[in-house]
Amino acid sequence: MICQGKALRYGNHVDTDVIIPARYLNTSDPKELAAHCMADIDPEFSQRLNPGDIIAAGYNFGCGSSREHAPLAIKTSGVSCVIAKSFARIFYRNSINIGLPIVVSDLDIQDGDQVSVDLNAGVLRNLTQGTEDTFPPFSPFLQEIIASGGLMKSLEDGKL
């Protein structure tokens, strides 16, 4: 699977409160959540985003509250992949469980850079800067969850 799009760049410690503020958590409807995605860090997010675009961030992306509404809002907004130098652990597992591709990489990516990610080959390319990085594949267990289309699907398939 290949994701390609423009990068929207954020810093370190982007927490789930700014990804989807609690005041919008009185619903679990993905479309409504997506409408408020990144509201408290980038109010222009939904205008700036084209389907398939990529979020690129620093360390500890998705820290804070366990709210799955955060990766869900990002995924439903049309973001194809999140790249960060590191992820907070609950955000990491939530993304795998709902099938939002995430990649850990130190590659320099600036706001607006064109980026492509080959998830199967484990290669990340910054097309604007002409640089690339590789990343290790997920463990077989997690690959199976991803291949099934998320945790619930792999449960239905009798794999849990």
């Binding site: 366990s66 609950i90 939530n94 945790l151 619930m152 449960l155 849990l160």
Partner: peptide, 18 residues
């Protein structure tokens, strides 16, 4: 430890967590 809602759903069904 804290997990997400899908983990919770799977655990309510299977009693297990990865």
């Amino acid at each position: 430890t804290g997990v997400g809602s899908t983990d919770m759903a799977a655990a309510m069904a299977s009693g297990k967590v990865w």
